[in-house]
Design a protein around this nucleic acid. Structure first.
Length: 226
DNA sequence: TTCCAGGCAATAC
DNA sequence: GTATTGCATGGA
């Protein structure tokens, strides 16, 4: 078995299925998550079930940029209470949206980007291509892949800073590895199944949350893999 | 007080 | 093409 598959196996055994992407109105639970909404749905890959849930994932993907998820949850709940967690928002809602999403930071940028994204999403009549997503302001490679993988169930592996950190620490990628290079490593050494892609990315995040910061790195995986 | 969080875009070199 | 900087809140 290659190392990409081995890491997945180890993480799944350690943490169990993560139930991503979390959704406000989903009842599923994940006991490994603390202080969070109960929106995780382990072993259920059927979400999103509605266009509104799909939009909620897009909003969460944008808001979580360089921001911790609990802060995003607060923003999502604020938006929901103000009836602004939908894709019919307009510039008239700008100030209210800013107030709602303050907990997740960069609220001036993110509020404008949310509104322009909503306009784009409302007119969307098909699954967007990766390039279409990347052409939207506020959507870079990670956000595009998160949206494609979790909102549209497309086969795109998500690479975030945690994933790079783990792979560098294991010396499976060079220090200056580019996004597409890391992505290709996973996509060409792992089963091509969107459910497994969803699970693997979530597991990498969960593991890194527990063992990594920008400065610290873990030894658990290193020991197992060597 | 300092560091950090599920990045991105604009600018500088 | 690569490196740097601004964006912002709140928890540890």
């Amino acid at each position: 078995m290659n190392q990409v598959k081995q890491i997945y196996k180890v993480l799944l055994k350690k943490y169990g299925p993560q139930g991503w992407w979390p959704l406000l109105d989903v009842k599923g639970t994940n006991p490994t998550k603390t202080g969070s909404i109960q929106g995780y749905h382990p072993n259920d890959y059927s979400y999103p079930k509605t266009k509104l849930q799909q939009w909620e994932i897009i909003v969460g993907a944008l808001l979580t940029q360089n921001t911790s998820w609990p802060q995003v949850e607060k923003s999502l709940i604020n938006l929901k209470k103000q009836n602004l967690l939908n894709y019919k928002i307009t510039n008239n809602d700008l100030e209210k949206i800013k107030e709602c999403i303050k907990p997740s930071g960069y609220f001036n940028q993110k509020s404008e980007r949310l509104i322009s994204l909503a306009q784009w999403y409302q007119e969307l009549k098909h699954t967007p291509t990766r390039d279409e997503l990347l052409s939207q302001k506020g959507i870079g490679p990670e956000t595009a892949d998160s949206i494609l993988l979790y909102a549209f169930k497309e086969l795109q592996f998500v690479i975030d800073s945690y994933t790079k950190r783990i792979m560098k620490n294991l010396e499976l990628i060079p220090n200056d590895a580019k996004y597409d290079e890391v992505k290709n490593l996973f996509e060409s050494n792992f089963e091509k199944d969107f459910k497994l892609f969803q699970e693997y990315h979530a597991l990498l995040v969960e593991h890194a949350k527990n063992y990594y910061t920008k400065k610290k790195s873990d030894s658990l995986l290193n020991v197992i893999l060597k």
